[in-house]
């Protein structure tokens, strides 16, 4: 019989790796991939908690979460492609810098 906590440990480690990637990377797609690692960890936690409480409702919420995640991937990739088409890069640091410059120019 498996211990509940073992699953959560795996999930926390995955969450920590994803959060590290999200905080330390500048590439938009890499940030999306890190967020997806965090999503996988959250889904595992949800199902482990649901297995000990209410499996049916937990399962339904997991199904909806997977659907929403697929949507999120679509939106983020589309935004990334658009940025790449317009600016030729997907470095979020440079993108935010160019936005600041633009707002400064508008003020003056």
């Amino acid at each position: 019989m498996l211990n509940y906590f073992l699953f959560l440990v795996i999930s926390f480690v995955m969450f920590a790796i994803g959060a590290y990637g999200l905080l330390s990377k500048r590439n938009m797609i890499r940030m999306l991939l890190s967020a997806e690692v965090m999503f996988n960890s959250a889904l595992l936690t949800l199902l482990v908690l649901a297995a000990t409480a209410d499996p049916i409702r937990g399962g339904v919420v997991a199904l909806i979460a997977i659907g929403v995640s697929a949507t999120e991937i679509g939106v983020m990739i589309s935004v990334g492609i658009l940025f790449f088409k317009v600016r030729g890069e997907i470095d979020v640091y440079k993108l935010s810098k160019s936005r600041e410059q633009k707002s400064r120019r508008l003020k003056t």
Binding site: V13, I17, G21, S34, V37
Partner: peptide, 11 residues
């Protein structure tokens, strides 16, 4: 495997 693939995704 899950931890190894998570590390590969990020790094």
């Amino acid at each position: 495997l899950a931890i190894a693939f998570s590390l590969l995704v990020v790094e």
